[in-house]
Design a protein around this nucleic acid. Structure first.
Lengths: 251, 251
DNA sequence: AAGTGGTCTAGACCACACG
DNA sequence: GTGTGGTCTAGACCACTTC
């Protein structure tokens, strides 16, 4: 009587807070608008800052908020749909005309263990590592390393190996790769956390949640190349549509 | 001299801790093995428990650890590859023979806002909501709600509407759906956090990270149904392969 | 210099699983 | 009951951006 409802299964404060904030974002804030700072929000809701932060973290994970050190917390725009592989239709090599990626660098180095396993090479074999970036709407949304089996591109054209511009070497490797015939590919998506170098490129802090898309490119000889692409999980929705009606899904 | 290296860009403690733990997991622990408890680990590394937990959280996010309240922290097995839609080849309706899902329940209710938009119905229109679950290796890995446009399945066979068994009604709706011709589909993947009901089904706490796979099924009349499937992000790697060579990717 | 979010501490209590 | 992870507090200091 007169008491508020007894919660038989009490909800954690941060969970309730998240709901309240989420509703407020829908009704009282516009995209890009800046929220009150964490200390004030915590005071306003009568919780410790750590608890408030737990709620904000979840909302950021869901792509509702964007936080930047030294700046503040802003309301994030809806996630952008990013087309990942048009599975239907003929498969294409990475770097085919019209793809969304920009070659950035190239080196010859051993691949990480997981990639070594897929390429079927020895652990210390130097493979081509082509670094590429992907922009969408003026924002860097993904960073990729394409590991090319040395048998796929055994030698670069004369002189190309000494080319000092990494992105030029990268494009050369891709061009050489296109001489092979692509017979198939498969692709996996999983959750990961950004390594330090990827985090820098994606303008995030190390450990930020990312969607890792691993693609295996098969030619007649087996796995010719493996791509590991790292997408910002907060801002991206990966799209595997076979048609181009992505517009209907947006907003 | 004699000093340890001065870190010009000091690494956060929890980040370093994560690296140390990750290496230890590779070299000193077997899958399923139980780690020392958080209070002891924190003491052993000379950090506060909250800091230690920050490192454990990341490792859990990456699928390296599994934590259960009242039990302890164990070393997680490698993520299981879960086949999601064989994009290539003919598309099929959900519930086609041989698919990995188990119908659980059915009700008629309004759909969430995002689904309403895709189905192109009014916000308060009651649609079929078919709940399904997906097991892999004895573990529940995903929970799905399939929203079926009322025009796609306007009426159930006589008597089926009064059937008290929800899973039987669910199977009936799927069967009726199969009478339509499927002309296309598209699919998106994004990061989300588990709602309370999904969390319970997936044996996780609310807010646990999940991969949300949204599939739109197109028939001649437009969007006939929309599926929202929620996969455990810690234990699953979604596979979009067109062949069945998933074995080469595993382990 | 001032203000923001990011890291860290040292405690406390709670919910849950298990013997 | 005992031990585990989960939640929460009230502080402190740091790294970064902006003015």
């Amino acid at each position: 009587m007169g008491t508020t409802q007894l919660e038989t299964v009490p909800e954690p404060k941060y969970w309730h807070l998240k709901t309240v904030l989420s509703d407020a974002l829908d009704s009282e804030f516009a995209v890009g608008e800046i929220l009150p700072n964490e200390r004030e929000l915590a005071a306003r809701f009568g919780v410790a800052r750590a608890t408030l932060r737990q709620a904000l973290e979840q909302l950021e994970l869901e792509g509702r908020l964007q936080r930047r050190r030294g700046v503040g917390t802003t309301v994030a725009p809806p996630r952008v749909g990013v087309d990942v592989g048009s599975e239907a239709g003929p498969h294409t090599w990475p770097g085919a005309p019209g793809d969304a990626w920009q070659a950035e660098d190239h080196e010859r180095a051993p691949a990480p263990a997981a990639v070594v396993r897929m390429l079927g090479v020895a652990a210390d074999t130097a493979v081509h590592a082509v670094r590429r970036g992907r922009m969408t709407g003026g924002q860097q949304v993904a960073s990729e390393v394409l590991y090319v089996h040395p048998d796929s591109v055994p030698a670069l054209p004369p002189g190309a190996d000494q080319e000092p511009d990494g992105s030029a070497r990268a494009r050369t490797v891709l061009r050489e790769l296109h001489r092979l015939q692509l017979v198939g590919q498969d692709r996996t998506v999983e959750l990961g956390s950004a390594r330090a170098d990827d985090a820098r490129r994606l303008d995030r802090l190390p450990g930020a949640p990312v969607l890792v898309v691993t693609t295996r490119y098969l030619s007649e000889g087996g796995t010719a190349a493996v791509s590991v692409a790292t997408y910002r999980a907060d801002t991206c929705r990966l799209s595997f549509s076979d048609s181009e009606d992505v517009s209907l899904l947006a907003s």
